[in-house]
Nucleic acid binder design. Structure first.
Lengths: 342, 342
DNA sequence: CTGAAAGCGCTAACAG
DNA sequence: CTGTTAGCGCTTTCAG
């Protein structure tokens, strides 16, 4: 292995000079800089990460806890991860993968000084992990939005506002009885933050408009068809559907087309999912995009800023946008009314 | 931060004793062991990973490169990752996430001694990364199977055999003209290892049985329907379909049901995908499971063994299993004939 | 503008 | 069975 001492010798300078060339923390004469850089290149030197973290007390690694639970939308998770990894790299950070299967993992990584900070996905409304995280030295950012006191920064999509926006659209289409076909029962049962907030926005918007709205768990499988049938059977006058379940969407879509509840001429669906998922359905659907990759990169930005000593930024929610489709072409996009406070 | 010296003092022993209690590398009297363990617990000590890696020249971290490219089946990726992470943890390893977006990442991680080994997914038949990997000090395992010389261990599902097995099944159902509805064009174009091998097995089996088989790229979207129509238009006598595209599967399924090419009574499809994907289709399909999680844990086992100094195990392919379904109940499973050599 | 040297926290000889 | 100590490779004072 080639060390900084080898480089120093090759360049005919001291070890500290090599170090300062790399960090840029003091001014170096152009000549020595060049010699050092050449030496680094010819020897193919890369500093030892462990030695560096020992001396500098920072690792340039961020721990990311991802959900590996049943019921999560795997596309969304992957896109968030993509956003986090890519953006963290632009700040010079790597990602240590931690999972919800291993709840102690974050503590391990933090207390072992493996990471400079933690990013936690799949937050529940009253998440037990938050207590643990508060006692760690490393800054933490949540991807999600728990209830109650916000003891740490949160980044997420504004699911609550998305609920309002979807209801707006369905009302504008003339629907007066609405149903939210949502996440699988297990996701709702553990009060996953996004599911709770979407339902809250949806129901509040329905109440505000004085229309009936109901919320239904939906499995991520072909059984989604049965859920649609049950909802319709229970109240045949339901005509407007907000669908928030990536795997169920094609089945719900198919069933609603079959039963004449959705068509190009008479759209009865607003889908809440990543853009590519909405486009993969065999026909046009209005949709509110879950900007999963953007959430990931925003979270990475926030946490890198905190590592750099920035002030914790509180809550940051990305606003939803509605995309209206009649054919596969986009007809219009609509942002939430700016008159209502977030 | 609490260090090993604090623990030693608290326990009234030397630093090295604490170290040896943790590593178990020499015998410790029960009494001192207890005192040390108590001290560790009361102080909440975790050894500093960087210091450890500096002194021991090992990190207990494995680098995992995952594909973030268009066209990959996101369920499969997630399941492989799940398997790798879970199994690596049982061996005491954490995972550093590297992505195909950052091709130099593996080299960075390796040369910076951030990882003890590398695991590489999404291998292409003639993969340019292999050259780089060969020159690294850390052991590497491929999840996939490149063509040509095997310069490093490979773990994968036996996609080639899966092609044979699918053809067996379709032939047994009486089909004589077969089509493989495969990965998106970009995946085929870059000669992703699994796609190449599946096509090879499929075509070889067709040739061996003297039946016509054709291979078709298929987008992961509703446009999959059009692909089915084109295949049928080009040769209306095609009746047996092997579908290897998780996102396209529901659409292909729907279209083949509509056109009467698939039903419970007359199955025309074999799906190659994770079990849960096959089950999410609205009706029974015969399927060959892609055991993605098992691939991940097998790969983790192999690489942990190599880190521990084990002999590189060459190629390890997991055999396919066919599951026949008529209702949602499983009717039978079939393994490949053991008479044919792998 | 550059060097020398003191650690960072841990492991693993070496020495009892 | 346990303690002492020399590094591991780097960052960062302190001293020129």
């Amino acid at each position: 292995m080639v060390t900084i001492a080898d480089v120093a010798e090759e360049a005919g300078v001291s070890i500290s000079t090599v170090s300062y060339v790399m960090s840029g923390k003091r001014t170096i004469s152009p000549t020595t800089r060049q010699r050092v850089e050449r030496a680094i290149a010819t020897l193919g030197f890369s500093p030892h990460a462990g030695a560096r973290s020992l001396a500098s007390r920072s690792t340039n690694v961020i721990g990311l806890q991802i959900p590996l639970r049943s019921g999560v939308d795997v596309h969304v998770v992957m896109e968030v991860v993509t956003g986090v990894v890519a953006q963290a790299r632009t700040h010079g950070y790597d990602i240590l993968l931690l999972t919800s299967d291993d709840p102690r993992g974050m503590e391990r990584a933090a207390k072992g000084s493996m990471v400079d900070a933690l990013l936690v996905m799949d937050i529940e409304s009253d998440d037990p992990r938050i207590g643990v995280l508060t006692h760690l030295e490393q800054p933490t950012v949540l991807i999600g939005l728990p209830e109650g006191r916000r003891t740490m920064p949160c980044v997420d999509f504004d699911f609550e506002e998305a609920g309002w926006l979807a209801v707006d659209r369905l009302l504008a289409q003339g629907h007066r009885r609405l149903a939210l076909i949502g996440s699988p029962a297990e996701v709702l049962a553990r009060h996953t933050s996004y599911a709770d907030r979407l339902a809250r926005g949806f129901l509040a918007a329905c109440a505000a408009a004085n229309v009936v709205g109901s919320v239904h768990a939906c499995p991520s499988s072909a059984d989604a068809t049965a859920v649609v049938d049950e909802v319709v059977a229970a109240d045949p006058s339901v005509t407007g559907f907000l669908v928030h379940n990536e795997s169920a969407l094609p089945h719900v879509f198919a069933r609603l087309v079959e039963t004449g509840k959705h068509s190009s001429a008479k759209p009865g669906i607003v889908a809440l999912c990543p853009e590519d998922v909405a486009l993969s359905v065999p026909g046009p659907v209005d949709s509110i995009a879950v900007p999963a990759e953007a959430i990931g990169s925003a979270a990475a930005d926030v946490i890198c800023d905190m590592i750099a000593g920035g002030t914790p930024p509180g809550v940051r929610l990305i606003a939803p946008t509605l995309t209206v489709r009649t054919s596969t072409d986009v007809v219009a996009t609509k942002h939430p009314s700016t008159t209502r406070a977030t």
